[in-house]
Computed example of a mutant assay.
Amino acid sequence: MAEMTVQVVTPDGIKYAHRASMVVVGTPDGEMGILPDHVNIISPLTVHEMKVYRVDQEQTINWVAVNGGIIEVKNNQITIIANSAERKREIDLDRAKRAKVRAERELEEAQAKPHSADQVRRAQVALERAINRINVGNK
């Protein structure tokens, strides 16, 4: 069976490293599926849930909450350099839910203020990340 090596790296180090038969990531243009022998590419990533179909565990999908970054696919090696990333098993759902509530409150407050575009955008990103973590944690 053809396979690829997948590695997710953040400023905190390697968050994920395995062999896979397929990987699905989120890009600004939508979801992108990557199979072995994929054309070499570099692409930006969005806040999205990454799906890794592992070679050594049939019918098993590993979920990773990826919070932006870039992906490079080259010679069956997938390298993701992410701002932050968490595997499903690492996600504290209660903490993620509290972060979502806090981000929603901050977004409301920022939208009520004039000239607060930066605050609005930061709150939107925090909300996006919290929702992504919750989605992955619930898989």
Rank of each mutant, 00 (worst) to 15 (best):
R54Y: 05
V55P: 01
V55Y: 01
D56C: 02
D56G: 05
Q57D: 08
E58D: 15
T60I: 13
T60L: 12
N62V: 11
N62A: 13
W63I: 15
A65G: 08
A65F: 08
A65S: 14
V66C: 06
V66A: 06
V66K: 03
V66G: 03
V66L: 07
N67Y: 07
G68R: 04
G68F: 00
G68A: 02
I71H: 03
E72N: 10
E72R: 13
V73W: 05
K74C: 15
K74H: 15
N76F: 07
N76E: 06
N76P: 10
Q77E: 11
Q77T: 09
I78F: 04
T79I: 15
T79Y: 06
I80A: 11
I80H: 09
I81C: 14
A82W: 03
A82N: 11
A82I: 10
A85S: 13
E86P: 03
E86G: 08
E86A: 07
R87M: 13
E90A: 13
E90R: 07
E90N: 12
D92L: 07
D92E: 12
D92V: 08
L93C: 06
A96G: 02
A96D: 00
R98M: 13
A99T: 01
K100S: 00
V101F: 02
V101H: 04
V101D: 06
V101K: 07
R102A: 13
A103K: 02
E104I: 01
E104S: 03
R105F: 06
E106G: 05
E106M: 12
E108S: 10
E109Q: 15
